[in-house]
Simulated scan of single mutants.
Amino acid sequence: MDSETMASRKQELRQQLRARRARAYSGTEGAARRAAEAQRLLVHAEPLLTEVEGMLRSAAAAHAPAPLVAAYHPTASEADVLPLAQRLARAGARVVFPAAAGVELDWVLWDGDSEFQDSPGRGFGREPVGERLGSRALEQSVLVLAPAVAVDRSCTRIGHGAGYYDRALGTVPGSARVVAVIHPDELLPADSLPRDAHDVPIPAVLTADGLVSLVTSTAS
């Protein structure tokens, strides 16, 4: 598939997937479904929380900086990762959110309680007001909770099309956990999504139905 055909196919898929998401999560009923699923996300994220809490204890014992976790502020129809991000921040992790900063994302610390503000960047959502750590902040990360429009079981993620997250994920150390947070029906069969050379494979997804390793095909 040439690059032009690939881009066209990705855009077509984004439109289809976003339309399906909007139908499922719009209105009062959709918002209630999303809120209920956010609580199930927390339950299935317990293994991730346990890992980070262990790292927090080790860091405290060594008088080292707290582990760094990346999250994102979801749109009204995306899977709601904020309750999980708040749990991590209140446990003591350094939780960062993306912010507009040219062709690469900047990363801003969030204290777990402060309000978010509209981003000045075109096409961006909301971001916290806090210390900015720069575009290389994820080099220190232990866990990255990434947004996606969908992910398939071949580890292929389709994002919103600007390439910000693929560039950011390229800076994440191999020891870190990268987990895409999506709705249950956005985990698709293997080879459902086209992958470019620059698309970073996603090894795991978290949905309201479970935490799934796409490498081992196990769920927890």
Rank of each mutant, 00 (worst) to 15 (best):
G123I: 00
C155Q: 13
E104R: 14
R157F: 00
I158M: 10
R90A: 12
V172I: 00
L133S: 03
I202H: 15
A45N: 04
G54L: 05
E51K: 06
Q15Y: 07
R18E: 13
L211I: 11
V212T: 11
V215P: 02
R14T: 06
A24V: 06
G159P: 04
E46H: 07
A32G: 02
Y72R: 00
I182H: 10
D166F: 06
R57A: 15
E104I: 11
E29W: 11
R9Q: 10
R126C: 08
V96S: 04
L214E: 07
L143T: 05
P120R: 03
A79P: 02
S26V: 00
T28K: 11
G112K: 10
Y25F: 13
L206E: 14
H160F: 13
A146K: 01
A60H: 14
Y164L: 03
G130K: 09
V215L: 13
L13D: 04
L17W: 11
G130F: 00
R153I: 02
E12I: 15
V179C: 06
R33Q: 05
A168P: 00
A85P: 09
A66S: 08
L206I: 01
R18S: 13
S192A: 14
S3H: 14
L138P: 03
A93H: 07
V103I: 09
D80Y: 00
I202D: 15
S154K: 13
T156M: 05
E78Y: 01
D209G: 12
V200T: 01
A32W: 02
G134S: 09
M6S: 14
A89K: 02
L13H: 11
